[in-house]
Structures are given as structure tokens and as C-alpha cells.
Computed example of a mutant assay.
Amino acid sequence: MSVSSSEEESEPKQGSQWDFGVADKFIVCLTQLMALFIICPACCGETNGNVEQQQGTFVQIKQVCAACGFERVWQNQPVLHRNMQPAT
């Protein structure tokens, strides 16, 4: 299947700079967001996801799997210079 040129232009290229002002943004319920962190992507076991940091519209979630030791930290938006989140 071929991708049209307009679709190609809307997808970020690897190594390119993001334009945060035009990036799509969504409002989600915390319960729905946390549901994404209950299954370990490594072993499919049950995991524990916790909100580690929240500031304005920025949220950071840490996921830890007790079964296999998998860990990840997920952020809803990139961190810019000196740990400042972009304005939304």
C-alpha cells in the first residue's frame, strides 16, 4: 500500500525537530491512561504503573514488572532544555 505525500509530510522524520505547536494533543482520563500500564510489554505479566511526576499538563509514569524486572518511564510530552516541558 502506498502512502500519499501529504501523509508522509505529517509524520515526523527520524532525527528531525518536532514542532510542538502543531503536534496533535489529546485529553485523556487518568484511569484510561493507567490501563495502558497494567500489562508488561516484555513478559505479558501484570505490572504496576505509578504517576511519578505531574506538573501542569506534563505527566511521567513509571512502570515496573515484578515478574521479569522490566522497567520503563513514559512521559506524555518531551522534556526541553533544563527539564522544562513545552507550553501546551
Score class of each variant (00 low, 15 high):
residue 2 S to G: 10
residue 2 S to I: 04
residue 3 V to H: 08
residue 3 V to D: 11
residue 5 S to P: 00
residue 6 S to E: 15
residue 7 E to P: 00
residue 7 E to N: 05
residue 8 E to N: 11
residue 9 E to T: 03
residue 11 E to L: 13
residue 11 E to Q: 05
residue 11 E to S: 11
residue 12 P to Y: 13
residue 12 P to C: 13
residue 13 K to D: 08
residue 13 K to M: 09
residue 14 Q to R: 08
residue 14 Q to F: 06
residue 14 Q to E: 10
residue 16 S to E: 07
residue 17 Q to L: 15
residue 19 D to L: 07
residue 20 F to K: 05
residue 23 A to V: 12
residue 24 D to Y: 11
residue 27 I to V: 15
residue 27 I to N: 10
residue 28 V to E: 15
residue 29 C to N: 14
residue 31 T to Q: 01
residue 32 Q to L: 01
residue 33 L to Q: 11
residue 33 L to G: 11
residue 34 M to Q: 04
residue 34 M to L: 13
residue 34 M to R: 02
residue 34 M to G: 01
residue 34 M to N: 01
residue 36 L to Q: 04
residue 37 F to L: 02
residue 37 F to P: 00
residue 38 I to L: 13
residue 39 I to G: 03
residue 41 P to N: 00
residue 42 A to P: 00
residue 43 C to I: 15
residue 44 C to T: 14
residue 45 G to Y: 04
residue 45 G to A: 10
residue 46 E to I: 11
residue 48 N to D: 11
residue 49 G to M: 07
residue 49 G to H: 06
residue 49 G to L: 06
residue 49 G to V: 04
residue 50 N to D: 06
residue 52 E to V: 14
residue 54 Q to Y: 03
residue 54 Q to F: 03
residue 55 Q to S: 13
residue 55 Q to D: 14
residue 56 G to M: 03
residue 59 V to E: 06
residue 59 V to T: 15
residue 60 Q to T: 07
residue 60 Q to P: 00
residue 62 K to S: 13
residue 62 K to Y: 04
residue 62 K to L: 09
residue 63 Q to T: 02
residue 63 Q to P: 02
residue 63 Q to E: 07
residue 64 V to C: 03
residue 64 V to H: 00
residue 66 A to P: 01
residue 67 A to E: 10
residue 68 C to N: 01
residue 69 G to Q: 09
residue 72 R to D: 13
residue 73 V to H: 12
residue 73 V to M: 11
residue 77 Q to R: 13
residue 77 Q to W: 06
residue 77 Q to E: 15
residue 78 P to M: 09
residue 79 V to T: 10
residue 79 V to E: 14
residue 80 L to T: 15
residue 81 H to I: 02
residue 81 H to W: 05
residue 82 R to M: 04
residue 82 R to V: 05
residue 82 R to L: 08
residue 83 N to Y: 06
residue 84 M to Y: 11
residue 84 M to P: 00
residue 85 Q to I: 07
residue 85 Q to E: 13
residue 85 Q to N: 11
residue 86 P to F: 02
residue 86 P to Y: 05
residue 87 A to Y: 09
residue 88 T to W: 12
